[in-house]
Amino acid sequence: MAKGVKPRIKVPKQASAGEAITIKTLISHKMETGLRKDADGNKIPQSIINRFTCDFNGSNVVDFDMKAGISVNPYFQFEAVVPESGEFKFTWYDDDGSVYEKTKKITVS
């Protein structure tokens, strides 16, 4: 498992129906491209977050497919209109098979 991986999300706790809310997500990850070499000239194997998804009450909101060019600590910001109260589920998929999950509840008034 990659070291120092920590997902963070920022979702407003409350929103009014029909309001576009801003969701910010960031996961600290070294995002090793697989192109670098170590001091002995050996390739450092690729180790990145290759996919990020966000679901709301079971239905998919966004699904990002990531390649080796993405910077360290990938940050995503998007807007969503939430129709009802519920729970956002964020999932990051690591090259090494690890899956990092985080959820956040939102109340719609």
Partner: peptide
């Protein structure tokens, strides 16, 4: 209509 309406503003 029940489905979530998404606006994606890619900040890149």
């Amino acid at each position: 209509a029940k489905k979530i309406f998404i606006i994606l503003l890619m900040i890149f």
